[in-house]
């Protein structure tokens, strides 16, 4: 099965820059010009101070596993070959949390608080997904 019978992100006007930066292998999120909050998901407005001003700042790409689960069942056919696969919620150094997969280790090795760093996975010319791998100490 080709990898991308899976779902691909379909960016909106508001989220497109995030995916454009991912394609350039850069993890960037919006930093509010009003209060400095780094926010995710991308949005036209700061949820905290309602400022409309922002800049896309480059993040360290480092964070920790906040939560992780193992899919033992594929809910859509495109994921069937991957079972059992992990999904994780990563808490970034800058604060935001995002969903991803942890790659580069076995599922059994994942734990909460595990230090990870971003690893970009190119799907095709349009889409690159940020994933995370363990930081080797």
């Amino acid at each position: 099965m080709s990898e991308w019978e899976k779902f691909l992100p379909k960016p909106t006007e508001d989220t497109e820059p995030y995916w454009d930066y991912c394609r350039k292998q850069e993890l960037r999120m919006q930093k509010c010009k009003g209060c400095g909050l780094v926010r995710f998901p991308p949005s036209v407005i700061c949820p905290r101070c309602w400022s409309l001003g922002h800049e896309w700042v480059k993040l360290s790409g480092r964070g920790k596993v906040w939560s992780w689960v193992i899919f033992h069942q594929a809910f859509y056919p495109g994921y069937a070959d991957d079972v059992p696969y992990n999904t994780a919620i990563i808490e970034l150094e800058e604060g935001p949390r995002l969903h991803a997969n942890v790659i580069g280790c076995r599922n059994e090795e994942i734990y909460i608080e595990m230090p990870v760093e971003v690893a970009f996975e190119k799907v095709d010319d349009e889409v690159t997904l940020p994933k995370f791998r363990p930081v080797l100490s």
């Binding site: 992100p9 899919f71 809910f75 991957d82 999904t87 919620i89 991803a100």
Partner: peptide, 20 residues
């Protein structure tokens, strides 16, 4: 739905939320 920040990773369905 276009759940662009979860579904590409295979994190799909209410079961996943509750598992987390």
């Amino acid at each position: 739905p276009n759940l662009e920040f979860t579904m590409p990773y295979g994190d799909i369905g209410a079961t996943a939320l509750q598992a987390h």
